[in-house]
Nucleic acid binder design. Structure first.
Length: 381
RNA sequence: GCGUGGGUGGCGGAGCGGUCAAUCGCAAGAGACUGUAAAUCUCUCGCCCUAUGGGCUACGAAGGUUCGAAUCCUUCCCCACGCA
């Protein structure tokens, strides 16, 4: 199990400082949770992950169930032993794949809807069906992205897989609804997600910490209903997922509908959010942990984050730039390597480029969050 | 020297009489990515402008045929391969 201790609550906002104790160590919150979908932070070794000051990681049940198989991970001694993670771990339930492999793929959108060129008439309403994912009362039928074979995951399966994988914190199986779901579709989906959440709570046999997931799309009544219902369950913490509207403001609003209905003593995780610009907003709303693929995903595309904005290191202008990615950064990449060399490596498709920037981005993101913790400590937030 | 095949935009390489400023790939430039299937996707890419349109210069060079040529003919200059 986990134990969550709140060290300080801000007087200026809902922000709080905490310690999240797990079987594999203690996390100072608020904290970034880098994404290790397939039991690896892509391009880095676990020693390197540790050196980025990463405190915990989240992996994905769907992926690990398919490869190498959750039972294989169990035989390896659980995910921590398997990937040599001496830090706390989480697994997402696979619920996000209901969206990302279903409507998300059909409609080519992410979970934040900034714009939808020429497709505003495309909505997901009651009766809408994804081309590749079929949702039933028992769970979700997928096609394997690897070989096209038929797959099925429901709440019971997800919990069983997550028990085998053995992370410290696991998530209830949910339907992550797409942007542009009608309120009717979202309401029906929410009922299903809630029935599934109850099944997850009831079927869990281990002492892993189970987080329930608050859905409800962009609709206030649904978000309020969802947060109250999930709060009533015997869960160890909360995940906040799903559609967050079209902007940071709408995300902020949605959190304001949800957080007040959640118990203080349970940790709150924001699923899949974590641009640098998002961090203070969600932390001020009382989020304790949040995961985001951006630092790692962008790193592999050559984008490095700095205190002066992001850099696209593939640009030719960096070939003659002898500065480190960020002069004020203390990470190994910035201590040793210069932009000109890293740019050269990207332009030559050398995998080391991705490693260097992944390391930097994670270190940098973790530093930004550490600074926010300090601000809370100092009473500035 | 003879023979054959070629010379097209930054590069490679289509086109082989009109709808060609010229398919496509690479390179280059701009942008997007938020519970990661996918180291991905989108746009631009001769020059200029009063820019969902208009003008100019272009397909080795110079002529020619034709209403019209990157596309046909002639000469010349290069390149590759083969034979001497």
């Amino acid at each position: 199990m986990i134990d969550f201790k709140i060290l300080k609550k801000s007087k200026k906002s809902w922000a709080r400082l905490g310690l999240l104790k797990t079987p594999h160590g203690v996390v100072e919150t608020p904290a970034l949770v880098p994404v290790a979908t397939k039991a690896v932070i892509k391009t880095l070794t676990s020693e390197e992950v540790r050196a980025t000051n990463t405190q915990l990681t989240i992996s994905n049940t769907f992926h690990l169930h398919l490869k190498p198989g959750d039972k294989i991970v169990k035989k390896a001694g659980g995910i921590n032993e398997f990937m040599k993670a001496d830090w706390p771990t989480m697994t997402d339930s696979g619920g996000f794949q209901v969206f990302s492999l279903g409507f998300g793929q059909d409609m080519q959108v992410g979970k934040i809807l900034k714009y939808f060129p020429g497709k505003t008439d495309v909505v997901v309403e009651t009766g809408s069906k994804s081309k590749s994912v079929k949702i039933t009362e028992e769970g979700v039928h997928f096609r394997s992205p690897f070989d096209g074979s038929k797959l099925f995951i429901g709440p019971k399966e997800s919990i069983k897989f997550q028990e085998n994988i053995g992370a410290d914190i696991i998530y209830a199986f949910d339907e992550c609804t797409p942007p542009l779901s009608t309120i009717d579709y979202a309401a029906k989906s929410l009922e299903l997600t809630h029935r599934w959440a109850k099944i997850c709570v009831d079927s869990k046999k281990t002492n892993q910490a189970l987080y329930g997931i608050v859905q409800g799309s962009r609709y206030q009544p649904l978000r309020e209903k969802a947060s109250k219902y999930i709060d009533s369950l015997d869960v160890a913490g909360y995940g906040i997922g799903g559609d967050l509207g079209e902007s940071r403001d709408s995300m902020d609003d949605i959190l304001s509908w949800v957080i007040p209905n959640l118990q203080d003593g349970r940790p709150r995780h924001m699923l899949g959010i974590g641009y640098l610009e998002d961090m203070e907003i969600i932390i001020k709303r009382g989020i304790d942990t949040f995961d985001c693929t951006v630092p790692t995903h962008f790193a592999r595309r050559g984008i490095a984050f700095t205190s002066k904005g992001k850099l696209d290191l593939k640009k030719t202008r960096f070939l003659t730039d002898k500065n480190p990615i960020d002069k004020s950064c203390l990470c190994n990449t910035c201590q040793v390597y210069k932009r000109n060399y890293i740019s050269h490596l990207f332009r030559g498709d050398e995998i080391t480029a991705m490693r260097l920037v992944t390391f930097h981005n994670l270190f940098y993101f973790n530093k930004v969050v550490a600074d926010i913790r300090q601000k809370i400590k100092d009473g500035k937030i």
